[in-house]
């Protein structure tokens, strides 16, 4: 066995492949496209051109590349008043945990290409959801460590938002699991099959899930922690350079992760492709379908930026507890009824 084979086997070792190459790299590309789409769609609605001059033929897609490079080489200014280690560690851990759910998310029904051994995949939904709730804690940490009125207010707002969306996100994504009677993502996708997608069977839970994603990733109209007119950039006020990019990229990563989960839970996962044997049919095509569906979800959420303003914090919480939570519970009830009727 040559060194090359070792390297290849290491790269194609499913957890590493899915987490680092597909997870990090893919998510980076998706984040780039999402940001580009967000800017371009907003520009269209707002009757302007948007990113253009960096690459007129690509519609300014290279602007985002330039932005990334700029962030990468910008000087990182760390004020003397911050708590150094938490300040540095928070964005790194936040980013790392943002992409961790990729490690437990199967993108195909072929067990050869699952990131974890089949025995461990039994509770994949539970684990993925558990991990998605971790990164916001590091946003609060970064806000607190930066030691500035704006960051602290932003951090506290983030804490409020977490409290309300966490429950909704978990419950609404559990609704399909309740209907199917399994916490295995693969089982749920297989149960949906070609037509019985949960977006049709359980639109209430789907709507709640979309709202929860928008809230958790600070998308409009819930972009409250970073609300510019009062708190500058919220928890990220003191950050610059690559650390700021990690913070802001983390939100897009989380949005993408949630998009993957929604695409698997509600949008029929890899269907209409039925995964077969081999790399192409067994992994590449199905995962592409899943990712495309996830990207559509992410872009749809990004589009809201052009339509909505920002809720006030108490109104967002009010909406979460009084409108979205009942919606979620109704979704779970609907799932129970469906399970009772034996649709699956």
């Amino acid at each position: 066995m040559s060194v090359l084979d070792t390297v290849a086997s290491l790269i194609f070792y499913p957890p590493i492949w899915q987490l680092l190459i597909l997870g990090f790299g893919g998510a980076l590309v998706v984040a780039m496209v999402a940001v580009w789409f967000e800017r371009k769609a907003a520009a269209r609605v707002q009757r302007r051109i948007g990113p253009y001059w960096a690459s007129p033929r690509l519609g300014g897609l290279m602007h985002l590349m330039a932005d990334m490079l700029r962030y990468a080489f910008q000087q990182v200014v760390i004020p003397r008043t911050v708590d150094f280690w938490p300040f540095i560690a928070a964005p790194i851990f936040g980013m790392a945990l943002s992409i961790l759910p990729f490690a437990v998310t199967p993108l195909t029904s072929n067990p050869n290409f699952w990131p974890l051994p089949p025995a461990l995949m039994e509770y994949s939904l539970l684990v993925a959801l558990a991990i998605t709730t971790l990164p916001p804690i590091f946003i609060i940490v970064s806000g607190w460590a930066a030691n500035n009125p704006f960051t602290i207010i932003g951090g506290v707002r983030e804490a409020f938002i977490i409290l309300s969306y966490e429950l909704i996100a978990i419950l609404s994504l559990f609704a399909p699991a309740v209907a199917v009677g399994s916490l295995n993502i693969v089982d749920i996708v297989q149960a949906q099959g070609l037509v019985k997608w949960f977006i049709v069977l359980n639109p209430l839970a789907f709507l709640a899930a979309i709202l929860a994603v928008a809230m958790s990733t600070s998308a409009f109209p819930f972009e409250i922690p970073e609300s510019e007119p009062e708190v500058v950039a919220g928890p990220f006020t003191e950050y610059s350079g690559i650390l700021y990019a990690l913070n802001m990229g983390g939100a897009y990563m989380r949005r993408f992760v949630f998009g993957l989960l929604i695409s698997l839970m509600f949008l029929g996962g890899w269907y209409p492709i039925v995964p077969g044997e081999g790399f192409i049919l067994g992994y590449a095509l199905p995962s592409l379908v899943v990712v495309v569906k996830a990207v559509v979800v992410v872009l749809a959420i990004s589009f809201l930026r052009a339509i909505y303003g920002r809720y006030r914090l108490d109104q967002a919480l009010d909406m979460a507890w009084r409108l979205v939570l009942p919606l979620t519970l109704a979704g779970i009830l609907l799932a129970l009824v469906e399970a009772y009727l034996g649709i699956f």
Partner: peptide, 19 residues
Amino acid sequence: AALMIGIKYFLNPKRFSIY
């Protein structure tokens, strides 16, 4: 209504920017 008007302009921006 807000979403529809957004989509309307997304499809036809009616822009007048000068390059």
